[in-house]
């Protein structure tokens, strides 16, 4: 089967504008989109730049957009695609460093802003926490996140408001808030009680649709909103312990 790849090319130091370059790619075997890109690079143009590592949809390196879909190139099988023309673009909402390589810095910066680490109970250091599986199950959905950035780059709010933290970071915050071992003070959540935080989200759930690991990060955003509202009501009525 022969495929036509139309690949986004841009070297900000050399090119005035981005452009699409055509590559023909023929294969009889089953190939992933990532394998096809690697072969195109090796055989046709070794300056073609893109990221990859694990080839098994767990490291989060190879997120990109093909024919308008956000996904991991390593888990997409060419043969399963409907069309033999494949348009490949880098993740939007992030600056392009070269071709399909984007600058993920704002994404990592958003993550570090939410204090993405456990606030453990200081007393139990020796033997670790004792927690039933049932309790831990509440966060399983969120620990599947591989930080691929699909949700961040599909998000319409990220694209128009640079303050907005995006779905992955907020879902990560919820992963900790919901962790039965986490003792972070409620005041820490006030940092996301803003337009740049949970109230920025327009709840159209594009992020949930594109997430390759079925994290449904916007569930976390909604849950954080509920928590903030409930706590506020509790405070107003003086129920706060």
């Amino acid at each position: 089967m022969e495929y036509l790849f139309k690949i986004f090319r841009y070297d900000p130091l050399e090119d005035e504008h981005p452009y699409f370059q055509d590559f023909f790619f023929e294969t009889k075997e089953k190939k992933s989109l990532l394998e096809a890109l690697m072969e195109i690079r090796n055989e046709q143009d070794s300056t073609l730049a893109f990221r990859y590592s694990c080839r098994e949809a767990i490291c989060g390196s190879c997120a990109m957009v093909f024919n308008g879909n956000f996904d991991l190139a390593c888990r997409i099988e060419l043969q399963a695609l409907e069309s033999s023309t494949i348009v490949i673009e880098p993740l939007p909402n992030l600056e392009i460093q070269k071709d399909l390589v984007v600058d993920m810095e704002p994404f990592w910066e958003a993550l570090s802003q939410i204090k993405p680490y456990l606030y453990p109970d200081k007393k139990i250091q020796e033997e670790g926490h004792r927690i039933e599986e049932k309790e831990m199950e509440k966060i399983f959905q969120y620990i599947n996140c591989i930080m691929c950035g699909c949700c961040y780059s599909v998000c319409p709010v990220v694209s128009r408001d640079e303050r907005y933290l995006g779905a992955a970071a907020l879902a990560k915050l919820y992963r900790f808030v919901k962790d039965p071992r986490d003792k972070r003070p409620f005041s820490h959540l006030l940092g996301v009680n803003t337009e740049g935080g949970v109230w920025g989200c327009d709840t159209i759930f594009k992020c949930n649709e594109v997430c390759p690991k079925e994290v449904r990060p916007a569930d976390g955003i909604e849950a954080l909103r509920r928590k903030l509202v409930v706590e506020k009501i509790k405070r107003i009525f003086g129920f706060r312990r």
């Binding site: 680490y117 670790g128 926490h129 004792r130 039933e132 599986e133 831990m136 966060i139």
Partner: peptide
């Protein structure tokens, strides 16, 4: 575990 690794658990809450 103390740093946050979400290990699977046995009944009783043990790793």
């Amino acid at each position: 575990e103390y740093l946050g690794v979400p290990f699977s658990r046995f009944p009783g809450g043990f790793i």
